[in-house]
Design a protein around this nucleic acid. Structure first.
Lengths: 119, 119
DNA sequence: CCTTGACCTGGAGCGCACTCCAGGGTTTTC
DNA sequence: GAAAACCCTGGAGTGCGCTCCAGGTCAAGG
């Protein structure tokens, strides 16, 4: 089974080593396995989860929600709750996209207006 | 000429009174006119500018950039620079939308996967 | 007038999400 | 077996964008 050093996990996941430790402290990652000397060794599974975390962070999910989702993931019987959480998040993402788009349109109108002023 | 009290300006602009004062301190708003007693009176023009500020903030423009844009607006000869700033911002907004959309797609795949597991 | 509510200033405080640091121990490389 | 690179912990610090507060002053209704 492939494992990853902290530096490698950071490289692959796109999070800094400090952020990985921070996420672990916050309970977003379950405790990462250690060598006899105490150094972390990330598994493929950890990396897979980090990939989803990246997706959720990129779409603006707050740390607190991520933590809640991670806690739910510890219990097999919470599939429905997890899906509900993701769907709720999906709605918020859609809202952000909508706001961004309509404001972008206004922005472009403003630019067009400037252009008409002879810029 | 219609003018607005701080409370009215907040109501209309959608920013809190504290935020309006903060923006003025930061130089995002030019100094607002005052009554003899020192109370602010916002003009239609101020409200119009705040409307654009809202659009730019909603699309994630940082305060520092907004300040720069506001400073440029003081000089008539900077139209081109202002347009360049807005166009640059427009590109960043487009990027955000693109990221959000592609990550939303991944999110939806994840939800669909859960659904296939029988949720 | 006088009360009541809105507003003033300067500055402190806050929530979020990291990021950095000191002072160590561990692992790898030659 | 030593140097160099990497990693550990607990906790402090940072940057952003507000938000709140104390201790006043100002304005409008009765």
């Amino acid at each position: 089974m492939t494992t990853y050093s902290p530096a490698q996990a950071a490289e692959v996941s796109g999070f800094s080593i400090d952020t990985l430790r921070y996420y672990e402290r916050e309970g977003i990652l379950r405790p990462i396995a250690r060598t006899s000397g105490g150094h972390r060794t990330y598994t493929e599974d950890d990396l897979g989860w980090l990939d989803l975390v990246h997706c959720l962070r990129d779409t603006g999910m707050p740390i607190a929600d991520l933590k809640q989702y991670a806690e739910l993931s510890l219990d097999e019987a919470t599939l429905a709750a997890r899906v509900a959480l993701l769907e709720e998040h999906d709605r918020r993402v859609q809202e952000s996209i909508d706001v961004l788009r309509s404001q972008q349109e206004r922005l472009r109108e403003k630019i067009a207006w400037y252009r008409k002023q002879g810029v």
